[in-house]
Amino acid sequence: MNTQRPPRLVATDLDGTLLRSDGTVSARTRAALSAAAAGGAEIVFVTARPPRAIAHIAEQVGHLGTAICVNGAVTYELARERIVGTRPVALDAATRMAETLAARLPGVGFAVETGIRVIAATGFGPRWDHDHRHVVVPTVSDVLRLAESIAKLFVWSADHHADPLLELARAAAAEHGECTHSGGSGLVEISAVGVSKASTLAAYCAARGIAPDEVVAFGDMPNDLDVLGWAGAAYAMANAHPAVLAATPRRAGTNDDDGVARVLERLFA
């Protein structure tokens, strides 16, 4: 990154990074984001969450910036509260991945994030307290048939930690989708081929003439690794996943200690 001037864009994950463990944005973090924006930086939140799950966060930050949601599949403008871009998984690719994974990993459960709601097959364990649009149907075939669009495919196993399940999912589905996880127990998320937080962020920046070395990024989980590897300056949170800490030399404090805000205060002093 050019050390002579502040970054032109701040890209930050939400859960475990910008947000405190209770899901709130601290007053110090709000002030740091506002100062960065006043200093000329664009603010982009890069998250696994769908737009509906960031409404209360948007309010806390004054509807500032843009959100790259669902691991890059949906771009959402906070100020106007509208979706401005989508990159869905093709139905045939989702069907092939579900069939392959079900055959190789008996007992796994499936769900789809459509961008509007979650549709889950019976046997899919996770529920999200912040999301009331969670529909349960009998089979994965019903899930795919009812999906308005497939922003990402969820694969869940009660018998696997997220890290080994991720490796199994990549081995089974890599040619049809991009597999990652954001820390959910036994939960893997699959986007369309070529779709990730970083690829959508890169396209967003290219459209605005912003180079990677003009971007500072923050993250804590494996689904943040691509963004942290792409940005000119990348910070792993002190509370980050071991893989993120290993790959990212710079450190920010923990999410509960306003780690992002402390870095931004230095950059935009």
Rank of each mutant, 00 (worst) to 15 (best):
R251E: 09
V136P: 06
H241S: 08
T200C: 01
D220M: 06
K152A: 05
Q60V: 02
A217F: 10
T24R: 14
I68K: 00
P51F: 11
T139V: 10
D142E: 09
A79E: 13
T248I: 15
R170M: 11
S185N: 10
E178S: 11
V227A: 00
A67M: 08
D142V: 12
H56V: 02
A48N: 08
G184D: 09
T122L: 06
V195L: 06
A111W: 10
S157L: 12
L168H: 12
D224Y: 09
R251M: 09
A121D: 08
V140G: 02
G109P: 07
A198Q: 11
E189R: 03
A158M: 06
A172W: 04
R262E: 14
T122N: 09
V227P: 00
A203D: 15
P249E: 06
Q60L: 03
M97E: 02
R170W: 07
A172I: 04
I54M: 08
V118S: 05
G115R: 12
V244Q: 09
R127Y: 09
G259F: 01
I57V: 14
V89M: 15
A269W: 06
T254F: 03
S157N: 13
R28K: 10
L225D: 03
D129C: 02
P138E: 14
D159C: 06
T47C: 01
L105C: 09
H161R: 14
R170D: 07
A171D: 13
T86V: 15
A38L: 11
A202S: 13
G219W: 04
G184Q: 13
A240N: 10
G125T: 12
A11T: 01
A173G: 14
H56N: 04
G229P: 02
E42M: 08
A94C: 10
G183R: 07
G259M: 01
V216P: 02
A247D: 15
A234I: 05
